[in-house]
Design a protein around this nucleic acid. Structure first.
Length: 218
DNA sequence: TGCCAGGCCGGGT
DNA sequence: ACCCGGCATGGC
């Protein structure tokens, strides 16, 4: 019998025992976390780190500062994160949304009802489902599950989801099986990313030495 | 050297 | 409703 809930809890235990707490998300404030969520779209975190350091050094890591900064200047500062022209636009869209919606107050906004807030975030051009869920979970400590490329690859390799499953299908798979626990959702996603970085990467298609290996395989 | 990284959008079928 | 090209830097 295919007990999905038990399988997901078992995977979580294995990852936690293997890797320990990940202490996510790296960031000092909700706004920094939200900016990081946009900058890390299809981009290695080490490059995002450089861009965020540049913003901090220039005292630009606030809604007000980014709102008033010319977009060309913003693009230049975040250059190490890649896609810098697109991402400068997306950050502008995000802070314009913050002022339009709640006077530039992200933290206040993050206390609104989860589903309507998620839809509001998704309406921002440049904020898709993963970015929205990352902001909600890691900046807002709200109980939503973040799905990314690693999550899908790991679930596919362990035969838990088909490769072509949609974002919402994978998200629902987790949220339907697990209690809405912010700390656990936080840790679970971070552990999946760590597994994706180490043993379940594209460069290691056989998942050699994977701590979850032989667990739900044939 | 080429491939990959914590996506998303817009235009074409 | 899908499919695909574009976006760009830095590390291995």
């Amino acid at each position: 019998m295919f007990d999905r809930k038990r399988i997901l809890l078992d995977l979580y235990s294995r990852l936690y025992e293997a890797f320990g707490p990940r202490h996510w998300w790296p960031g000092d404030s909700p706004f920094e976390i939200a900016v990081g969520a946009i900058l890390t779209q299809n981009t290695a975190w080490r490059n995002v780190r450089k861009a965020i350091d540049n913003l901090k050094t220039a005292s630009l890591l606030s809604p007000d500062a980014l709102y008033h900064l010319p977009i060309q200047d913003l693009a230049a500062v975040i250059r190490p994160a890649g896609y810098y022209n697109i991402k400068a636009q997306r950050l502008k869209h995000f802070v314009e949304f913050l002022f339009l919606e709640n006077g530039g107050d992200l933290e206040g906004l993050l206390t609104e009802a989860l589903d309507t807030l998620r839809n509001k975030l998704l309406s921002i051009k440049g904020v898709g489902p993963e970015t929205a869920d990352s902001i909600l979970l890691y900046a807002g400590t709200r109980p939503t599950f973040v799905v990314d490329a690693y999550t899908r690859r790991i679930l596919f390799r362990h035969r838990l989801m088909p490769q072509e499953a949609s974002y919402d299908e994978v998200r629902f798979f987790f949220m339907d099986c697990l209690k809405p626990d912010v700390a656990m959702f936080n840790e679970y996603h971070a552990l999946l990313v760590h597994l994706g970085h180490t043993f379940c990467s594209k460069r290691n298609p056989k998942c050699t030495e994977c701590p979850a290996r032989g667990w739900n395989d044939e």
